[in-house]
Design a protein around this nucleic acid. Structure first.
Lengths: 219, 219
DNA sequence: TGTACATCAGTGAACGCGCGTTCACTGATGTAC
DNA sequence: TGTACATCAGTGAACGCGCGTTCACTGATGTAC
């Protein structure tokens, strides 16, 4: 099995993949070289055959996480353009499931705080990625670019903000309430929903199926 | 000067204060005991006279940061109830100034990612604090509690999300564009602004003075 | 087909460094006389 | 008022541990003959 063609590339891919999950789960700086190699079924010594340094891997892994996230947004937007509209997109993003599955979830809520404290390469990748996602969200709207981008940013901000708050919160009722409020708000302000001010208020379109625990004031 | 009454308490306070700034600036896990003591003008050995462990200080410092942030929100809301309304609150929060001054800024955007990865004490303090802030924002609204809370959470989410995106971004034009979009959206959805759907569209109330660099698509 | 050799992904001991924590000691202050 | 002593916040050397990085070595595979 050893030396089968492309073996080295396979290993490289496996490490980057694992790292892209790990940094989302535990934070960029918490990534440990030996720990990661163990996860990949290897010992720590071989690491430097594939990467110049720990920081080098971090840059690769972060780029991978961003790339996946952009693809994810692309799929969500494609689906929104087909059936469902933004409602599906929003209610896929703001769920308990996405709350729990940070490792495979969107890189924006998982890593934006780490990016701010991170290196230049990471910040550049992030900025370009965010701009791409904004473009994705704004593209479909039949309105002036500037306005569409503004609403796209607003939608992205609520979704990001609500998911982060929901994840950091440790009381189930509050978590659910935040997700529900986020879904409601994101839908109201999405670029393709509010072409005219009236049409924006689409209460009935917000799917409620995810509310096992009806939101309630809890303090 | 040594042994003047309350000297020990003063030192304790100074360390907690410095730590509360430091964890916001660099993240909870990046806080170093020796480094922090140096900032307080002391050597590392004395640390354990005041704290049981590094984690103990982290809990204290985080509680301090949350406390300050809640007070900050209280002041913002008080001011909003007087003159200015929500416009002032929003445009104070979503500025380049707040972007830059993370250490003394709101703990929510600075630390919510760290909270998710943090200990039980930190998560509890955070959850209770967030609930308090939601209550603060919802209180003034003359509408059903549930609806007011929902809008309060939405406002908080955009402000948090937009500030985090703006901070993580490294291109000035994009940063400004995100702040502006956040200001616009937060104002539209604030609990006291949208008593009826029509009154909510208060474009003219969003202060534009902060746009030295007019937002533009940059990719 | 079988044997000797070259290749190179992966191994694991070792090194240096930073960091949290401990502990015997210091020395300025307050107090007893 | 002056002197001896007790107190205790703060000092800094030392310890153990985890981690990033290096490097001489291993051993399975592919190739030459």
């Amino acid at each position: 099995m050893r030396y089968s063609k492309g073996r080295r590339t396979e290993t490289y891919e496996r490490i980057v993949k694992n790292a892209s999950l790990r940094i989302r789960e535990r934070g960029i700086e918490s990534m440990r070289v030996a720990d990661l190699m163990k996860t990949a079924g290897l010992t720590h010594g071989g690491f430097y055959l594939h990467f110049k340094s720990r920081k080098d891997l971090i840059n690769q892994a972060f780029a991978r996480a961003m790339g996946e996230s952009i693809e994810r947004w692309q799929r969500l937007v494609d689906k929104a353009d087909g059936e469902g509209g933004f409602a599906d997109m929003v209610s896929t993003y703001l769920t308990k499931r996405h709350c729990a599955d940070i490792a495979r979830g969107c890189a924006l809520p998982a890593l934006s705080a780490d990016v701010r404290r991170g290196g230049a390469a990471v910040r550049k990748t992030f900025s370009e990625g965010v701009d791409e996602i904004i473009e994705l969200l704004a593209k479909g709207a039949q309105r002036p670019t500037e306005e569409a981008r503004r609403d796209a940013i607003a939608t992205l901000s609520v979704m990001l903000g609500a998911l982060m708050l929901a994840r950091a919160t440790d009381r189930d009722a509050l978590t659910e309430e935040i997700l529900e409020a986020g879904r409601h708000a994101a839908l109201e302000m999405s670029p393709r929903n509010s072409g005219d001010p009236e049409a924006g208020h689409s209460e009935s379109k917000v799917p409620k199926k995810l509310d096992e625990n009806p939101p309630k004031s809890t303090s």
